[in-house]
Design a protein around this nucleic acid. Structure first.
Lengths: 224, 224
DNA sequence: CGGGATTTGTCACGCAACTGTCATCCGACC
DNA sequence: GGTCGGATGACAGTTGCGTGACAAATCCCG
């Protein structure tokens, strides 16, 4: 199948979107819940996915994360909520774009086209960050030390990915709070605690970290 | 160059965007006209471009087309006009995203990040100041002598960065106090002490400094 | 739906490292 | 040789970081 999967619980809106997109020349399919959408995508992947944030059961954010876990499919959020925090959270979760309802179908269509163009040109191998015996694979959602999987929690993983993505650069506690947690403000000790926990898991000698190092007064960084 | 190029004619808005993005950890550069932006991008390409639609001379749409012709760089339109027709036209012209002013910087930053993830933009190289065997890398938070990391404290590091940034120029103790410490007034001896400590760490012969030199009665400067 | 396990965020404390001040010494310049 | 600006060593106060304990939130499983 080639086309668009629309995950939206409101029957009227879903139908309207499906019809309008069909009119624009897309092959379409709908799902009323995140679970249904995920199942559909697994069985017979669409080229692009539209997802609402407020879904019954599994919510939109989690839906995005799970879609992303299996797949690099372009995801556009279509939400009624026009709130920076939601937008940031959705994009962080893995969405590619976020539009606010009601949306002009021409705009939606143009955004889908732009995204498809971008996704096509960028078909690339799965990136795996490696630091000595430490491997971090954002796509797989896995961390390995000397080839052995290390169990890390979601927050730890996001933190690790953020650091790995900017390997060699200092990231301040503020930057980490903002990028990993989405906090504008908050207790910086929180970062310390998670870094500490991460070190217990990924460092040979957690008291003398070789990869996840502290720069006193500046922040943390991943060392190659 | 690595980072974000902002093409926007309104000085106030451009400056605000640049500062905010810098705050988010981006390396930034601005251009006031499409022509200037295109030239900048050709000479020294940024990883991502922000462009306003209403520009004097060459307009935003044409600017996007020309950027696209040379390059696959991710382009985000930041416009005051919230009009489906403009949005569609901009995306058709080759833009990847379109946000309406005023925009929350957090949202913009998240969109840039999402786009970068999608475009798999090459990781930005790390800028480094070099003075003979002495390297100072603000991004990495590291100082190296002959390739070996030298442990410096935060204050020392800031001081060194300030001097390195204005290499070859004298900086008075007052200027340093103000830029490094944020003091309007204070004991100038403080600077001496930190310079001394720094010399112990980065100079081969601290008593006869070659890079961090004193200009009696004037201040200090970094010597190439 | 319920209860146990896991994860997450907060807090307070202790240690180590850093900062700024001061007094003294030194060397350049007139 | 005198004077002035700069260097330096010592020290006490402060700051920043790591950590263990704990409570709240969330997940997971039947």
């Amino acid at each position: 199948m080639a086309g668009v999967l629309v995950i939206e619980d409101d029957d009227r809106i879903r139908l309207a979107l499906l019809l309008a997109l069909e009119d624009e020349g897309y092959v379409v399919r709908g799902a009323a819940t995140a679970e249904e959408g995920l199942r559909a995508q697994r069985q017979d992947p669409a080229d692009q996915v539209l997802v609402d944030l407020m879904l019954p059961g599994l919510d939109g954010f989690e839906c995005i994360r799970q879609l992303r876990r299996d797949d690099d499919v372009p995801i556009v959020v279509v939400s009624a909520r026009d709130d920076t925090h939601d937008i940031v959270a959705a994009l962080e979760a893995g969405a590619d774009d976020y539009v606010v309802k009601p949306v002009a179908i021409k705009e939606l269509s143009a955004r889908l086209r732009a995204l498809r163009r971008r996704a096509r040109t960028a078909a690339a191998p799965v990136p795996v960050y490696a630091f000595g015996g430490l491997e971090i694979s954002p796509e797989e959602g896995e961390v390995r030390r000397d080839g052995r999987p290390v169990p890390v929690t979601r927050t730890e993983f996001r933190l690790l990915c953020e650091l790995a993505e900017h390997a060699g650069r200092v990231l301040s506690r503020q930057q980490l709070l903002s990028r990993v947690w989405g906090y504008d403000t908050g207790d910086e000790r929180l970062v310390d605690v998670h870094v500490g926990r991460l070190r217990q898991k990924i460092e040979a000698d957690p008291a003398n970290p070789r990869h996840l190092v502290t720069l006193r007064g500046l922040g943390y960084k991943m060392q190659r």
